[in-house]
Write a protein that binds this DNA or RNA. Structure first.
Length: 301
DNA sequence: GACCAGGTGCCAG
DNA sequence: CTGGCACATGGT
């Protein structure tokens, strides 16, 4: 229980910008948790009121030490980025607990933010530890998820992601993969290690690096960022990796932050993107889905 | 119904 | 190396 003074924070924007997925509106604020600690948060102007947990953990999670003004000025010469950065004033890149961030982004492929939130909350409600003082349970430990069946996870709405999360949970629970160790690695090696886990490719790895390991230069190229970077570019990009490199160069040392501002603006329809269809990005294939007529559910109930 | 969502794995050429 | 598809689910 306490109050923190924070001139450069937009709590709602930060918690709803597609990096964390488990903060629920509660009264005029939010309730959720950081790891196993329940929190209730409410912002009034420059004051952040909180109950539960402790101030240091909260400050660290919300990254109140990030110098947002320096981040904004890093793209002052790029009109679109500058506009997005100003519009997203107070949006901070969180420092999320490693496991829950890693696991949650395994859920993200081909899902909208609202769906990821549903899956995350279902996992928490069905398998997470209940926390006194919050409707939101903790994210289940690797060992808990590893002990479940693939169908248990499918019942949380995971679809084909169930297999990936289960296998990754097993590797973490067994100690074969240690999320803590990633923090000590240079970004390139950290990315490679993350990509060795099932369900984690370059994009998801970059999300995890950005939202949990404070690699603020990481640029996760999803459909939105892909379209935006394409629109900035003269030539068409060859590959997604090429587009990512282009983004890193263009957006600078805080590319991940700027990317988040652009992502938010685009999602709100506040950014004009030429050729808004996903056709501009080669890996968007789901409109070619094959219909073979087999509607049989192989994983009923 | 058709289309799309903060993509990844796998396989053929 | 690249191109092309399957993969589950839910919302508009």
């Amino acid at each position: 229980m306490g109050v923190i003074e924070c001139p450069e924070l937009d709590l709602g924007l930060t918690l709803n910008s597609g990096q964390a997925f488990h903060w629920l509106p509660a009264g005029s604020g939010y309730e959720g948790c950081i790891g196993n600690r329940p929190y209730r948060l409410r912002q009034e102007g420059n004051l952040l009121h909180f109950r539960g947990g402790d101030e240091a953990t909260l400050r660290h999670y919300l990254a109140l030490d990030h110098d947002l003004e320096a981040i904004r000025s890093s793209v002052a010469s790029h009109p679109v980025c500058r506009t997005a950065a100003i519009a997203c004033r107070g949006l901070r890149i969180l420092r999320q607990p490693h496991w829950e961030c890693l696991a949650t982004f395994i859920l993200s492929p081909m899902k909208q933010v609202a769906h990821i939130s549903k899956m995350s909350l279902a996992l928490r409600a069905n398998h997470g530890k209940k926390l006194r003082g919050s409707k939101v349970p903790a994210f289940p430990d690797p060992s808990v998820l590893a002990s479940l069946s693939e169908n248990d996870l499918r019942r949380c709405g995971l679809g084909f992601r169930a297999k990936h999360l289960l296998e990754t949970s097993k590797r973490v629970a067994s100690g074969e993969f240690l999320p803590e160790n990633i923090a000590t690695l240079p970004t390139e090696e950290a990315r490679k290690a993350l990509c060795s886990l099932p369900g984690i490719g370059r994009k998801v790895a970059n999300c995890i690096l950005l939202f949990s390991y404070e690699r603020l230069e990481s640029v996760p190229v999803d459909v939105w960022i892909g379209r935006i970077l394409e629109s900035f570019r003269k030539r068409k990009a060859g590959s997604l990796v090429e587009l990512e490199r282009y983004g890193e160069r263009l957006l600078g040392p805080y590319a991940g932050y700027i990317q988040q501002y652009l992502f938010h603006q685009a999602r709100k329809g506040l950014l004009r993107i030429p050729g808004k269809g996903p056709k501009t990005i080669e890996h968007s294939t789901n409109r070619l889905r094959k219909r073979d007529g087999s509607n049989i559910r192989r994983h009923p109930r």
